[in-house]
């Protein structure tokens, strides 16, 4: 699948945030880089259907999966409960268990997310995005709060996913883009 984004414009209170943003993203990682406040998150929100652009076109029938800037987890549920909330009956528990173990969350059954550390929550948010059925993945600063070891684990999983579908990655760190062999879009 290829994502075609054409002449995307968005402004807030008359202040332009995105001006004629155009790019095409196929399977692989496309890295969106820009200084803070330059519209990276706005771009992802438009692609996810959470904001309407002032003008321009985005692919309309894409099923997205995402890691948001915040973790957006159900704090009262455990890791598997959060995955079940999104996937419902489609949740493949052995596959989910294997992924959670790979992300260092294998021994958290029954522990509500509110008791997780920041890094654990981030890894669970990534696990949810990887397991949810999707055509494309949007990742907004997915490595926030992760130590080097967990960052490497997550990079490996993203690299694997990007072989099958487009992955849009918002990050500040050029090393992430380099490590993933990503195409870079600067806003």
């Amino acid at each position: 699948m290829e994502l075609h984004i054409k002449n995307l414009c968005k402004s807030f209170d008359g202040r332009p945030v995105l001006e004629n943003v155009s790019f095409t993203a196929g399977p692989g990682v496309t890295c969106v880089m820009a200084p803070s406040g330059a519209g990276k998150t706005t771009l992802l929100r438009i692609l996810l259907g959470l904001e309407r652009p002032d003008s321009g076109s985005t692919p309309s029938d894409v099923r997205w999966s995402a890691v948001f800037q915040e973790n957006r987890l159900l704090e009262h549920l455990d890791a598997m409960g959060n995955l079940r909330f999104v996937l419902g009956a489609a949740l493949d528990e052995p596959a989910a268990d294997a992924l959670l173990t790979e992300l260092g969350l294998g021994d958290t059954a029954g522990k509500p997310v509110r008791e997780f550390s920041g890094g654990m929550k981030r890894r669970l948010a990534l696990a949810r995005a990887l397991l949810a059925p999707s055509d494309a993945l949007a990742l907004d600063e997915p490595f926030t709060g992760l130590d080097e070891e967990n960052r490497a684990r997550c990079l490996a999983l993203i690299r694997r996913t990007a072989e099958e579908k487009p992955v849009l990655l918002v990050t500040h760190d050029p090393a992430d883009a380099k490590s993933l062999g990503a195409d870079v879009i600067k806003l």
Partner: peptide, 24 residues
């Protein structure tokens, strides 16, 4: 509202939104 946006992106059905987000 952020959880509701998450549920919208992941296309979570209304029943699960009610029990997972609205009920708490």
């Amino acid at each position: 509202a952020k959880l509701l946006e998450m549920a919208r992106v992941f296309r979570v059905p209304l029943g699960r939104r009610l029990t997972g987000i609205y009920l708490p």
